[in-house]
Design a protein around this nucleic acid. Structure first.
Lengths: 185, 185
DNA sequence: CCGCAAATACTCGGATTCGAGCGATCGGAG
DNA sequence: CTCCGATCGCTCGAATCCGAGTATTTGCGG
């Protein structure tokens, strides 16, 4: 069990039993799809894996109208424990991450000084836009639920701000020549 | 071509032709394995994919002693262009990323106020350690190569600092009660 | 009351990722 | 000179991931 989507599933089932499709819908409704990549394919795989591990179990299968059956899953006792352990571990232990931008920055040289500045300026613009959006979403959410349920957005905003700050600084350094382009870079 | 390791391969071949094993070794030597996840299995897959796309090509296969053959790859003209385009795109367009910590933070509630504070304190410690290490690596590297080749470490440091700052702040908020635990969270 | 878009609920298979393993060879201690 | 561990260079299969597709059904504009 590595896929964080599994954690989201456990988190939902903690509240009440549910069928996979409803999980996806709920996650998206709550904007959790900003924290997890929630794709239907993976969801069904993850649910199957959780059943295999014995962390969740099928409770009943219901048929509404003549639509495909909905299998409703619920948390087991083990599942409840494991959920907490899982969250705890992920909070305690920083894991090495490899954001795509980090890899690209390693090769900034390939763009040339002016090309790099240009590209970075565009990134900065886009970052500002997405920051605005996040701040808006945060404000809206905060009006409806306690802060605890929105902290992850605060975190995301902080990281985005840091990135934007860095990008702006580097643009300045490139333009002023403080970040020099050795020949052949 | 999505795997950023492919970009690293192109970057290396830009300097000189090379065989896969040497690529892995070089990347690790230069500490690029902080920017890319470099696993041998994926490396060979990626090289094969790049050949298929016509961005790199086998130049020769050499046999030193009676060891397995080494196939040496070199960049094609197309590959050179695509490398730049690739870097440019990744710099310009922020991509939604899903760090594991972000997903865990969404469920901080499950740890309880004191449990969350505890776990966050441990994370903070680890972050401080890894920051020290990064700063050391940066200083060492800067003594040997122009700054341009080390900017990605500066970026990583910035992000880590931002995260640490946020974590410390949240610990304070939890302990002071500014971040309240609604019942049943 | 007809038709068409959106929602419901899931399956399937191709693509990707990766780590464990494998066979060989080299360097150096004894 | 011979044995052992480290290094070399790569292959393979198991696991995972995910988007496109399927088939029904509800809702609603005209």
């Amino acid at each position: 069990m590595k896929n964080p989507l599994g954690m989201a599933v456990l988190g939902l089932l903690l509240e009440s039993p549910m069928h996979p499709h409803a999980m996806a819908a709920t996650l998206r409704e709550r904007g959790m799809d900003r924290s997890f990549k929630v794709t239907t394919g993976s969801l069904y795989d993850v649910v199957r894996a959780l059943v295999r591990e014995g962390w969740i179990e099928a409770r009943e299968t219901v048929k509404v109208g003549a639509r495909p059956e909905r299998t409703i899953y619920g948390l087991t006792a083990v599942g409840q424990q494991e959920f907490t352990r899982w969250v705890d571990r992920l909070v305690r232990e920083p894991q090495p991450e490899f954001p795509k931008f980090l890899s690209a920055v390693s090769y900034l040289g390939a763009l040339g000084a002016s090309g790099a500045a240009e590209a970075l300026r565009e990134r900065a613009d886009r970052l500002r836009a997405s920051l605005d959006e996040m701040r808006g979403a945060h404000r809206d959410a905060l009006a409806q639920v306690p802060r605890l349920f929105v902290v992850e957005v605060e975190y995301a905003v902080r990281l985005a701000e840091a990135e934007l700050g860095w990008v702006e600084e580097i643009i300045g350094d490139v333009e002023s020549g403080r970040l020099a382009w050795p020949e052949g870079a």
